[in-house]
Amino acid sequence: MDKMEPSFWENRWREGKTAFHEGAVNVHLARHFPALKLDPGARVFLPLCGKSVDIDWLLARGCRVSGSELSKEAVVAVFERLEVTPDIERVRDLHRYASNGLVVWQGDFFKLRNTDLGPVEAVYDRAALVAMPPSMRDSYVGHLRRLCGPVPQLLVTYDYDQARMDGPPFAVPERDMRAQYEDAFEIDPLSSVDIYGALADRCSGQEQSWCLRPALD
C-alpha cells in the first residue's frame, strides 16, 4: 500500500500498528516547551496529532490546542480520554471537533485551510515531518507555512539508518531538516536522546529536538 495514501494511515490505526504513538508525554516537549517563549493562553498547533497525550499536557499548562489528524478513531480517543463531549461540525471534507480550548480537525491535513485553523502562536511537530517520505516533505512544509505563518516551532525528528528500517516514521537527519527550514528559520538544537519506547524495538538511533524561530528580515 502506498504510504502517501490516507488509507495507509487509516489501516495503521485500525490494526493497532501505531509504534509512533507514545503513551507518555514526549520527553522533548516536557524539557523544552519553555524555549517557545509563549504567553499564557497561546494557541499551539499539532499537525498529525494522533491521540497524543501531549495534547493533555499542553491543555493542563493553560495552552489552547489545535490539531489535525486523519484518523477518526484517534480523534475520538482524545476526547474520550479527556472525558469531554466535543461539538462536531462538518467543514467541506473535514470534521471539526471542539471543546474546552481544544480543536481537532479530522481529515486530510492538506485540505485544511488557514481560514479554518485561524491564528496560532506556535507549532509543535512531533509526528508530522517524520511521517512524510522525502517526496512529500516539500509539500508538507509549504502547506504548514501557509497554514500558520511565521511562528516558532518545536520540532522532533529521528536520525537512524533508514536502510535498516522502512518508515514511517522516517529518518530526517539534520542536513535534510535544515534543507527544509533554514531559509525561513533560525534553528537551535535542543537535545538528542536514544530512540525509546515501542519504536526502539524496530530501530536504534537518535530522537532529536529543535527550536525553529522565524528569521528576522
Rank of each mutant, 00 (worst) to 15 (best):
M165H: 09
P169R: 02
S135A: 15
L147S: 11
Y140V: 02
G142K: 06
P150K: 13
A179M: 02
D166F: 08
G149D: 07
S204M: 03
R175V: 13
A163V: 11
G149C: 10
E182H: 09
E207T: 07
F170R: 01
A215S: 14
G142F: 01
P169K: 00
A215T: 09
V156N: 11
P168V: 03
F185M: 08
G205N: 04
R213I: 08
D183W: 05
I195D: 00
V156F: 07
I195W: 00
R164S: 14
A184V: 13
G167T: 03
R145K: 12
L212Y: 09
V156Y: 07
A198W: 00
G197D: 02
D183P: 00
G167Q: 02
D188I: 13
Y181D: 01
H143R: 06
R146A: 08
P134F: 12
D166K: 10
R178K: 13
M136A: 13
C211G: 08
R164N: 04
P134S: 15
Q206N: 14
S209F: 05
Y158S: 06
D138C: 10
L212E: 07
M177G: 05
S209G: 05
M132D: 04
L199D: 09
R213N: 05
G149I: 12
L212V: 08
D194Q: 10
V151N: 03
Q153S: 09
Q162F: 06
V193G: 02
P214D: 05
P134A: 15
H143P: 07
S204F: 01
D161I: 09
Y196C: 07
Q162H: 10
V172W: 07
I187S: 06
G149A: 05
Y181V: 14
S192K: 13
P150Y: 10
I187Y: 10
G205R: 02
L155H: 06
P173T: 11
S209W: 06
G197V: 04
Y158D: 02
P150F: 08
S135G: 08
Y140G: 05
S204Y: 00
V172A: 09
L199V: 04
E207N: 01
L212W: 08
R137Y: 03
T157Q: 05
R213Y: 04
A215R: 15
A171F: 02
R146F: 05
Y196E: 12
G167M: 05
R137M: 04
A184W: 13
P152T: 07
C211I: 14
A171Q: 06
T157P: 09
R137P: 08
M132Y: 00
G142M: 03
L212T: 08
A179R: 14
C211W: 12
A215V: 08
L155Q: 15
D138L: 15
Q208P: 00
R137I: 05
V156A: 12
F185N: 10
S209K: 02
S135I: 15
R145N: 06
L155A: 11
L154M: 07
R145Q: 10
R175S: 12
S204V: 10
L155M: 15
D201K: 11
I195C: 00
A200T: 02
Q208G: 00
L190C: 09
M165W: 04
